[in-house]
């Protein structure tokens, strides 16, 4: 499939129906997930705020997932110098930044009732904040270099540096957290989460994922068209 999609024309033909299909799936999953979220019973500890988890945690997953996609696309772009991989990397960053911002904002709104404060320098929160700064740096670098090919390659190198660095950041922040805050206030979900919470969480995560897939395809399409428009304009001028 990868080989086939590497051809821009075939990609355009594929994404033409794949993007709407994913969008429909996303809409369906989102409605189902929201219904599940709001019909789930209240947590005995968190009360109604447990519903915030269903929109916050998937956003945090997506923040990381998008970065993985960004890193993979950048690697492909740098190694194979393929236009579609470059387009995919460019298209991915704003979406990733959006999900990361979402994770941070809903995290704050969750933190206030849970911890009694808007912001906690918890390991997880701090890592996501660094990730957000990374997305910003990536997009700033891309915007600051005029030559587009060069900008894409430079930001691709940065994305790879970040891919190596982010686990180190995660590790260091975790370590720092144990040093400064021995007892975590965060009551984490995970396997112990009862099924009535696991279901809405899973469905919402899938919904976000499908939405990201659809939007990524749409944005890559936009990038392909933009490239095409640029070369057409250049041909018309010369």
């Amino acid at each position: 499939m990868f080989q086939a999609l590497a051809n821009p024309q075939r990609f355009m033909a594929f994404s033409r129906w794949a993007a709407p299909l994913l969008a429909v799936i996303a809409a369906g999953l989102l409605s189902w997930g929201l219904w599940l979220s709001f019909s789930a019973p209240e947590d005995y500890q968190q009360g109604a705020t447990v519903r915030l988890m269903f929109i916050h945690v998937p956003a945090a997953y997506m923040a990381m997932f998008c970065y993985a996609c960004l890193g993979a696309a950048s690697l492909m772009g740098l190694v194979f110098r393929h236009v579609l991989a470059d387009a995919a990397a460019r298209a991915c960053a704003p979406l990733g930044a959006g999900f990361t911002a979402l994770a941070l904002i809903t995290g704050m709104l969750w933190g206030r009732p849970m911890w009694g404060t808007w912001w906690v320098w918890d390991a997880r929160v701090t890592s996501v904040l660094v990730l957000f700064l990374f997305y910003i740096g990536y997009m700033a670098l891309q915007a600051a270099i005029d030559d587009e090919t060069r900008a894409t390659r430079a930001s691709g190198i940065l994305a790879l540096v970040g891919l190596i660095n982010l686990p180190i950041v995660k590790f260091s922040v975790d370590w720092w957290n144990t040093l400064h805050q021995p007892a975590s206030v965060f009551r984490k979900g995970g396997p112990s989460l009862p099924p009535e919470f696991l279901w809405p969480l899973g469905v919402m995560a899938l919904a976000y994922m499908a939405l990201f897939g659809a939007l990524w395809l749409v944005r890559i399409r936009a990038e392909v068209w933009r490239k095409r428009a640029q070369s057409l304009a250049l041909q018309a001028a010369g």
Partner: peptide, 10 residues
């Protein structure tokens, strides 16, 4: 600064 400071966290 914007690129490098997040890298300086560790």
């Amino acid at each position: 600064a914007v690129i490098v400071l997040p890298l300086f966290a560790p």
